[in-house]
Every structure is written in C-alpha cells, then in structure tokens.
Amino acid sequence: MATPTATAGVDLRAGANAALASRWAKPAVFTLCLVPLVWTMWLAYTGELGAEPVLESVKASGLWALRFLLIALALTPLRMLTGVAGLARFRRMLGLFAFFYAAVHLSTYVGLDQFFDWPAIWKDIVKRPYITVGMGAFLILTALAATSTDGMVKRLGGKSWRALHRCVFVAGLAGCLHFLMLVKGWQTAPLVYALICIGLLAFRRWPVRLWRRKDPQAGTGSVRTPRAEAPRSGEAPAPRFPDGSSPARRS
C-alpha cells in the first residue's frame, strides 16, 4: 500500500511534469531568460550601473553566461533526483542562452570597451591569460550551439555528437577558471561557482539515483537500465544520451 508521503510525491511530480509540458512553459522560460539582459539595459539607460557602465555590463553578461551554463548542466541531475522528466525540455534552450550571454559578453568587450581596436585586443589577450581562457570557453560554446539541432545530431551521428557535447563541462570549468583569474585575491563567489561545476561533473561521472525501479521478475531492488528500441533492418541505432533519453526529445 502506498504511503501518503509517496502518493504526495507522485502527485507533485505529475503536476510538475504537466506544467512543464504545457504550451506556455517554453515561452515563459524564454521570457525569464531575457530578464537579466533587459534589466542590465535598463540600469545602463537610467545611469545606475555606476561610474563604469561598460565594464559593469561586461561583468554582468559574463556572469549570466556562467549561471545559465551551470543551470543547463544541473537539469539532468535534477531530473534524475526528482523524477521530473519535463526538465529535459529546457536543457537545450538554457544552453543556448548561456551561449547568447557569452556572445553579449564578448561583443560588449570588443565593441564598447575596446571599440574594435584589434591590436589593443591582441595585446590584452597576451597580457591577460584569463581572456584567453574565456575565449576558449566561448569557442566551445559556439561549437555546441552550432550542433544543437536535431539535424546536426543525425549528421554527426550519436557517438560523435555525444563526444562533442561532453565538452560542455570543459566550457563550464574554463568559465569558472576565467572568473577565478579575473577577480583580485581569493573571493567566495568564483569558488562557489567552481565547486558547483565540479560537483555537477562528479554527479555525471558517478550518478546518484534516489528513486530506483525494482525489477519485477527478480523481486530485488536492482536498477533496470532503460533499453533502447531495436532499430529496423538497415537502420542505424538512434543516438541516445548516457541516461537513456533521446537527443531528439530534448527540444
């Protein structure tokens, strides 16, 4: 007999999945993701960004790029821990917003801070290694954004696509290192972001499942690994993520 707590947990997961699957969920999340940009623009317009508004804009966009990247990386662990499968719908969108804010970060630095003075930018890169690290993270995010569509999954093949998109953790670690090298002295905020990224990487390497499905035949508490559907004759197996879900379903 199911306990009231277990029943309440199932009801909460069902309600969360229903809300996340609604037609309004993606537009709502999309709008929320634009709030940091609109807010920063409003502060710049009203003169509330301080004495150096361009520098503050560069900092804000870079910080939000790192935040969205870590949020996107956290969705799979949250889905595994909570059983709310609907979270997977937003992983691609949040990853693309991480790239978007990284592009705003770089564009603001190049256009508004350096005024497209390429020799000065090159000297800045040579003089300040944290810029090189940040550029490396941006190039990785660019490659991931360019191959995020279902069509690119088919062109690259499941194995190559998964190998490429595992580099998202390299981008996350590079972004955290960029933040650590940027600040003066040892500050708490960049260390917290770095620990979160390392924790998410460790979780993906050694996943922890709180809800386990018992094997009805063996009658034990062993975890059953999801089985991929058998391909038809002459077809290649559909690419899947390590947790068994299909890239095509993560829209």
Score class of each variant (00 low, 15 high):
93 M>K: 00
72 A>P: 04
96 L>T: 08
80 M>R: 15
81 L>F: 01
57 S>M: 15
71 I>K: 06
75 L>G: 02
60 A>L: 12
77 P>A: 10
77 P>F: 09
65 A>T: 06
69 L>E: 00
72 A>V: 00
62 G>V: 10
89 R>T: 03
88 A>T: 10
96 L>Y: 08
66 L>P: 03
92 R>N: 10
86 G>S: 07
78 L>V: 12
62 G>I: 10
81 L>A: 03
89 R>Y: 05
68 F>Y: 11
90 F>M: 03
92 R>E: 12
76 T>L: 11
84 V>D: 01
88 A>K: 10
95 G>S: 03
62 G>M: 10
77 P>S: 10
71 I>C: 08
60 A>Y: 11
66 L>W: 03
67 R>Y: 06
83 G>P: 10
73 L>I: 06
68 F>H: 01
62 G>P: 12
59 K>A: 15
86 G>E: 00
71 I>P: 02
65 A>W: 11
93 M>Q: 12
59 K>Y: 15
98 A>C: 05
93 M>G: 03
69 L>T: 04
78 L>I: 08
88 A>W: 03
72 A>H: 06
84 V>N: 04
90 F>I: 01
65 A>K: 07
70 L>Y: 06
96 L>A: 11
80 M>L: 14
76 T>E: 09
95 G>E: 00
68 F>C: 04
65 A>Y: 10
75 L>D: 05
73 L>M: 07
89 R>A: 08
85 A>M: 12
76 T>A: 15
66 L>H: 05
57 S>E: 12
81 L>G: 02
58 V>K: 14
92 R>K: 14
62 G>S: 13
83 G>A: 02
77 P>W: 10
78 L>W: 13
73 L>N: 06
71 I>F: 12
80 M>P: 09
96 L>G: 03
76 T>G: 15
80 M>E: 14
74 A>L: 06
91 R>V: 04
98 A>Q: 09
88 A>G: 11
79 R>I: 07
62 G>R: 13
73 L>S: 04
77 P>N: 11
74 A>S: 13
95 G>F: 03
79 R>S: 13
74 A>D: 04
82 T>E: 01
93 M>P: 06
86 G>F: 07
95 G>M: 01
61 S>P: 08
